[in-house]
Design a protein around this nucleic acid. Structure first.
Lengths: 154, 154
DNA sequence: CGATGACTTCAGTGTTGACCGAAGGAAAGG
DNA sequence: CCTTTCCTTCGGTCAACACTGAAGTCATCG
């Protein structure tokens, strides 16, 4: 007997969460992301997420707050409804990735400062210079790359 | 009275270590990297690092092992010397950064699997598709970008 | 305005991981 | 071979953090 689609999606969500857990996002946060990417309908309340993902209300609350804060999830409130609805903000994923790339390139400011401290001693600066050049190149190319990024299809 | 160059370099090493600590590299590992980038002479033994960085021999050993493993530091042994010498391997920094970029783009395999699970339901796949396209684009552009990287000057 | 429902906050728990320092073991040299 | 030096391994400590569940807060509705 074959495994149902929903079951396989659950497994996929778990893999998805595991990946981002390695990047420092709490497991439950990753589960929320994965779930909100594929659930139907697209909007869920905190209570629903708590039940679906079998996580405490506290964890859901904390992680939703974090995800809304970084922009990956959008919160919507409606008058006449106490329960807020959360949905994925897939458009923001681009900036999310961009921040990561910037974080990598930002080492350049460090190597740059280091080079300044070693000015006057080119011999000693050689090792740092190699690294500095690498990050300098990245700091130029990554923003340029980003500008070439096509807008996501409607 | 002005602060000596070595003192400022110590502060720089600390900032350097702090940056990589945020990326998951232990503080002491980051200190070793920063120190080996600017020390004179370029090679140091574990004992020297332990003294300079005021870290236990155990921590130095563990972190050196890790850094040698990821290729950022090179270990050299010489006959007639019990103490191994460690030095920065600045050439390897490029691969180090490349691994990070690959890690980011690797989400594409995940989104790809997800898209397959949702095939037959384009409506529901829309959110994931946006994310999948982003990572698909990255997976194409990042390797291409890397090929354009100039060799580091001698 | 009390009751209900829905989040948020917070104290407590468990786990993970960095760090230390002592004990162990290999290499050089007397 | 015994000593010294150097490194690695390992148990133990400590701090950080994810997670839980209960208490608190706020809005809605009868």
């Amino acid at each position: 007997m074959s495994v149902g689609r929903e079951t396989r999606l659950s497994a996929w969500i778990e893999r998805f969460a595991a990946h981002f857990a390695e990047e420092g996002i709490p497991l439950i946060g990753g589960r929320i992301l994965g779930y909100l990417l594929v659930c139907q309908p697209v909007e869920r309340t905190a209570a629903e997420l708590s039940q679906e993902l079998e996580a405490s209300s506290g964890s859901i609350s904390t992680n939703l707050k974090y995800l809304v804060n970084v922009g990956l999830v959008t919160k919507r409130t409606r008058r006449g409804r106490q329960a807020a609805e959360y949905r994925i903000n897939e458009k923001a994923w681009s900036e999310f990735v961009q921040r990561k790339l910037k974080a990598i390139a930002s080492v350049q400011t460090l190597t740059d400062d280091g080079m300044r401290l070693l000015s006057g001693d080119p011999e000693r600066a050689m090792r740092l210079r190699t690294v500095d050049h690498l990050y300098g190149w990245l700091s130029e190319e990554l923003p340029a790359l980003w500008e070439r990024k096509p807008a996501s299809p409607k």
